[in-house]
Design a protein around this nucleic acid. Structure first.
Length: 296
DNA sequence: GAAGCGTGGTT
DNA sequence: TAACCAAGCTT
């Protein structure tokens, strides 16, 4: 008999406090759920909502997306960020068509083999779309488990196998209940057990939380590496270049792209990177989004 | 395991 | 205002 009290408490709280997100509505298919998970990778819910609606309205099945150019997926991605995710989602739709008859597979290993689908997303789809019992471990769950179970102030930066084990031990035996517990843990991490200023006063797990019980010890202060700034990076230049192409329907002369960044060396490097990544194509002396060099 | 990859709101 | 933050994946 293991510790499923946390799951019970979390689910009770979730019943009353879960946000009404459209991909959580009963009956939503695995494909729209998969799209939501891909969009939510590193992008806040509020920004995903309108784009998700556009995608599921336009491409309710994988076949619809697979029939488009990759560039159209990139264009419809809008400003969600990390546009390679749009490319991967398009590749994913194609893979679903060729390997799985146009449907999202239920098997975890088959999900993991899809483009852009990693450990978190595969388990999220298996749990939330198909009601399977898998540990669904994202940054929120890692943080919550680190605090509630291990009594630590925060989790490590990346998901490790041990995180999956620790989370799996919290899941109730019934698959559907386990899936709901995973959703509840994530929601608690997103709304209550936040990174910056956790609201332990409103947390249903506080009475069972090791970290809270220990008086909320702080993160040990140490020399932290300063992360790379965004301004002036290739990342920013890529974003500027892609924004021009996204808002254009046809080929864009490279001469026009010269206007978005004055440093020729960096601009060329950024553009070459976009081409290398398959987001952009060169057509003579012009650029287009992927797959739109001939038509579109 | 670290680095690279967008974007915009919040503190 | 600069830094931080938001449901990761790939190489």
């Amino acid at each position: 008999m293991s510790e499923t009290k946390l799951a019970t408490l979390a689910i009770s709280w979730y019943d009353d406090n879960a946000r009404d997100l459209p991909w959580r509505v009963p009956g939503v298919g695995a494909w729209p759920i998969l799209i939501s998970e891909a969009m939510l990778q590193q992008t806040p819910v509020a920004r995903v909502l309108p784009v998700w609606r556009q995608w599921v309205d336009r491409w309710p099945e994988p076949a619809g997306l697979a029939a488009e150019t990759p560039g159209e997926a990139i264009r419809m991605w809008g400003r969600l960020g990390y546009p390679r995710r749009a490319l991967r989602l398009h590749e994913c739709a194609t893979a679903l068509l060729t390997r799985h008859g146009g449907r999202v597979p239920e098997d975890l290993d088959e999900l993991l083999a899809l483009p852009g689908i990693g450990s978190y997303t595969a388990r999220a789809v298996a749990a939330f779309a198909y009601g399977q019992r898998h540990p669904v471990v994202d940054t929120n769950v890692r943080r919550l488990v680190a605090r509630a179970v291990a009594g630590e102030p925060d989790a490590g930066p990346a998901t490790r196998p041990a995180d999956l084990v620790a989370t799996a031990e919290l899941l109730p035996p019934e698959p559907a209940v386990a899936a709901r517990a995973s959703a509840a843990f994530m929601e608690l991490g997103a709304l209550i057990c936040t990174a910056r200023s956790p609201r332990c006063g409103g947390c249903p797990l506080a009475g069972s939380c090791s970290w809270f019980g220990a008086g909320r010890p702080a993160v040990p202060t140490g020399p932290t590496r300063r992360p790379q700034r965004y301004a002036g990076t290739d990342r920013q230049v890529r974003g500027l270049l892609l924004a021009v192409l996204r808002d254009s329907s046809g080929p864009v002369p490279t001469q026009r792209l010269d206007l978005v960044w004055s440093d020729e060396v960096q601009r060329s490097r950024a553009l070459a990177g976009l081409v290398q990544d398959g987001l952009v194509e060169l057509v003579g002396d012009a650029c287009v989004l992927a797959g739109e060099g001939r038509a579109g």
